[in-house]
Amino acid sequence: MPVVFRHRGFRFGFYSNEGNPREPPHVHVKLGEADAKFWLLPEIELAYNRGHSARLVRELTDIVARRRQTLLEAWDEHFSEG
């Protein structure tokens, strides 16, 4: 999983094999076995949560919102055809 950034032990990134056809831009947030997936477009939206508390998901949503541009740029760079 390419990690775009880390925050308080959480890894924010995506997988290189994001489906065929490729899924829209999103980010996985992992800490240990817990994983949450957020869509980045058109709005930030929780796709699923496995193991994070509701309070923590709200905090992670705020972090993803603040860093959305960085995440989108990393996604575009990683998956660019050129």
Rank of each mutant, 00 (worst) to 15 (best):
H26V: 12
R67N: 13
L60Q: 07
E77I: 06
V27F: 09
P42D: 03
A34K: 14
A65I: 03
S53N: 05
T70D: 11
K30Q: 14
H78Y: 13
D62S: 15
G32P: 07
E43T: 11
A74M: 09
E59R: 15
R66W: 11
Y48D: 09
L56R: 15
W39H: 00
V27D: 11
L41S: 02
L60H: 06
G51H: 04
P25L: 10
F38A: 00
R68K: 11
R67I: 05
R55V: 13
L40N: 00
A65V: 01
N49Q: 01
G51N: 03
P25D: 05
P25M: 10
S53I: 09
T70Q: 14
Y48P: 08
P42I: 10
D76Q: 14
E23T: 14
F79L: 09
T70K: 09
A54V: 12
E45C: 06
R66F: 12
R68M: 01
P25C: 08
H52K: 08
H26Q: 10
Q69D: 15
L40V: 03
V29R: 03
R67A: 06
V27W: 08
G51D: 03
G51K: 06
L31T: 11
G51E: 03
R67P: 02
K30P: 07
E33Q: 14
I63T: 01
W75Y: 06
T70S: 04
K37T: 12
L72A: 02
L60P: 04
Q69R: 15
P24H: 12
R68I: 02
G51T: 08
H26P: 06
A36D: 01
E77V: 09
A36S: 14
V64L: 01
E33R: 14
D62G: 14
L40E: 00
N49I: 04
W39Y: 02
H28P: 10
G32N: 07
L31G: 11
V64G: 04
H78F: 15
V27A: 13
N49L: 04
Y48V: 11
I44G: 00
L71H: 11
V64A: 02
D35H: 05
E73C: 08
L71G: 06
E77M: 05
E23P: 05
W39C: 00
S53R: 13
H26A: 05
L41F: 02
P25T: 08
